[in-house]
Design a protein around this nucleic acid. Sequence first.
DNA 1: GTGGTCTAGACCACG
DNA 2: GTGGTCTAGACCACA
Lengths: 125, 125, 125, 125
Amino acid sequence: MIRLDYKNDKPLHEQITQGIKDLIICGVLASGDQLPSVRELSVDLTVNPNTVQRAYKTLETEGVIYSIRGKGNFVAESHQADNRTLDKLYFSLAEIVRELAFYGESEEKILKITSNILKERNDDK
Amino acid sequence: MIRLDYKNDKPLHEQITQGIKDLIICGVLASGDQLPSVRELSVDLTVNPNTVQRAYKTLETEGVIYSIRGKGNFVAESHQADNRTLDKLYFSLAEIVRELAFYGESEEKILKITSNILKERNDDK
Amino acid sequence: MIRLDYKNDKPLHEQITQGIKDLIICGVLASGDQLPSVRELSVDLTVNPNTVQRAYKTLETEGVIYSIRGKGNFVAESHQADNRTLDKLYFSLAEIVRELAFYGESEEKILKITSNILKERNDDK
Amino acid sequence: MIRLDYKNDKPLHEQITQGIKDLIICGVLASGDQLPSVRELSVDLTVNPNTVQRAYKTLETEGVIYSIRGKGNFVAESHQADNRTLDKLYFSLAEIVRELAFYGESEEKILKITSNILKERNDDK
DNA sequence: GTGGTCTAGACCACG
DNA sequence: GTGGTCTAGACCACA
């Protein structure tokens, strides 16, 4: 389900982190579901177990999943971001929006596309 | 004019690249204007000349500026992004917006903040 | 009586160990009382018997309970910690309190919360 | 300055994380100060660089330090904990206090020692 | 079987 | 020289 792009400059563990989040967003993984084991996923993605481990650890500290020793990793019930995480996200948003504006994209278009992104999410539900 | 945030995890050369773009957006730098020399700017920003050099090179390959040997660097006439660049930007936008939605941020809030980001840009002009 | 939190990063056997201690503190289990058998408790908690066994063994080596072959496990007369154990606990206490102070928590607040923790214990009695 | 206890069940990277925090608390490391480099410290502690790296990363995500690629790691200005971190600390506090109470330590004594720990901190200032 | 820690050593990006 | 990523492989604790 998760596609890794080795050409991408984004670190593999971040791609995995994002991939898991996407799966949760899409509803493929629901609250309480067990994630594939570290070793299993590492084989699937032909990646070192440490890399998957790190991605899982990040998700755990973010409160997205929780892990039980000897059992596995599971999707958490609620996903509440602390303020720091949200701040970072909004900062990134600002950067990208400014960049788009730089290339002449109109406010109208940007807002509409943003709105569409959110609507697609609702359609999935 | 360009503020560098050393604590930021973003590389300095990227911050400079973005800073130049911002100056162009704000109108401080117009088409045909000459940019400060690499040495000059490196002194201004108390940064290694290599770092400024790299930023200029990036801007040149992006078509934002052009350089004339022995003369200096100048702002290009138009800065139109090719479709690939725009696609990437919109893809990044989608990622971040979905992540925000994932953490429960409302469509209203996201759209309003996006709008504000664009408005701030206009205020600078 | 014992609530296990599977999401907790603490091993189940430690949670059980702590749970038994709590029951003794609350007075539910008094000196000389017989503990539920390993099998019984493992069924109650829907946990592997090995896990309960390990908890009991820990409690026995700590002197909190004693076991009689063929009879069962019983609460010991007194549970006095040796100095080492107390030292360790107070050391851990110091670590956490300093960390709280590091993050700007006031002495007032820390003391009040500590006091409350102890009061809750009394309420249980 | 940092002492690692290999016999301790606490992971090395946590001991390092705690050690750095202690140095900041004691005032050995002040805001803005540069930390020893990953490689340097790893040699000092005769530990793998990855282990130090991990400790530094943890401190960074906690907002205690910030790192600049190619420059080094530096102590952050303010150390504000997010709620999740504080919650964990207070939870740990409760566990230890209850354990102390279990071994018959009086509320008076516990509160007094807690108070002393905080007072020692002030004396250092 | 599961997650978690650690080492050794390589490679890249940054300044 | 700095931090950051990744691999390969080992070992331990837990259930």
